[in-house]
Structures are given as structure tokens and as C-alpha cells.
């Protein structure tokens, strides 16, 4: 069991969460994670890390500084991501998820990184 397992378990126990992954921010490589069948974890991790890097660049260009939290809402689900120290914690959830609770859990997880 990796050092990230408790953090991942705390997020995935929320109703509606279908995946949680710890990703290397620069490389977009999965460090640890778990996902329901149907979520392509490696592809998802690489693309989310890329999205966060590009969002950070946009934010910095606008003079807002680094991105501290990213929430992406799609018709079939949500992606929430936050990171620290070169690592990202990314959660994938169904639309029915309690976003407030999940945000709190994600921030707690990031503090524990």
C-alpha cells in the first residue's frame, strides 16, 4: 500500500466519485490511484495534468497567479483537481456528487501531500 492510499480512499468513499488519482504535475504520470471500470486512468491523468498546466499559464498571464483549484463540469460528470509540491490530486465524479464535500476532502488531501 502506497503512502497515498489513505488519501485516495478518503476521496473515493464519497458517493458519486468514480476515480481518484495522484499525478505527477510535470510529467502527467500516475503515481497512485483507483478508478471504476471504463475510466482510462493513464490517459485521464496525462490530459488533466496538461489541462492544469495550461490553465496555470492562462491564470498567470492574466495576473492571477497559480491555479489552486480546478473544477471542470461536463454533461456526464465533473473533474476536480488541486495540487502541491509537484503532485496533483484529481477526482472524477458523477454529476450527482456533493461538490462542496468533495472540495473540502480534496483540499484536505492536498494539504497532506
Amino acid at each position: 500500500m502506497s503512502q497515498f492510499a489513505p488519501l485516495i480512499a478518503a476521496i473515493t468513499r464519497h458517493r458519486g466519485v468514480t476515480a481518484c488519482v495522484v499525478v505527477s504535475a510535470d510529467d502527467g504520470i500516475v503515481v497512485d490511484g483507483t478508478a471504476h471500470v471504463g475510466v482510462k486512468l493513464n490517459a485521464f491523468a496525462a490530459l488533466t495534468a496538461s489541462l492544469l498546466r495550461k490553465t496555470t499559464r492562462a491564470s498567470e498571464a492574466a495576473g492571477f497567479g497559480a491555479v489552486t483549484f480546478l473544477e471542470l463540469e461536463a454533461t456526464e460528470g465533473k473533474v476536480l483537481a488541486s495540487g502541491r509540491g509537484g503532485l496533483l490530486v484529481v477526482a472524477v465524479a458523477e454529476p450527482r456528487v456533493n461538490v462542496g464535500l468533495l472540495r473540502v476532502e480534496l483540499r484536505r488531501a492536498v494539504e497532506a501531500l
Binding site: 499525478v23 505527477s24 510535470d26 510529467d27 502527467g28 504520470i29 500516475v30 493513464n42 490517459a43 491523468a45 496525462a46 490530459l47 495534468a49 496538461s50 498546466r53
Partner: peptide, 11 residues
């Protein structure tokens, strides 16, 4: 360079 990443290249 920083426009891409190892994960993206592997994908």
C-alpha cells in the same frame, strides 16, 4: 518542452 509532458507523449 513544457508544452507537452511524458504522460501526453506516451498517451
Amino acid at each position: 518542452d513544457e508544452e507537452s509532458s511524458l504522460g501526453i507523449v506516451q498517451l
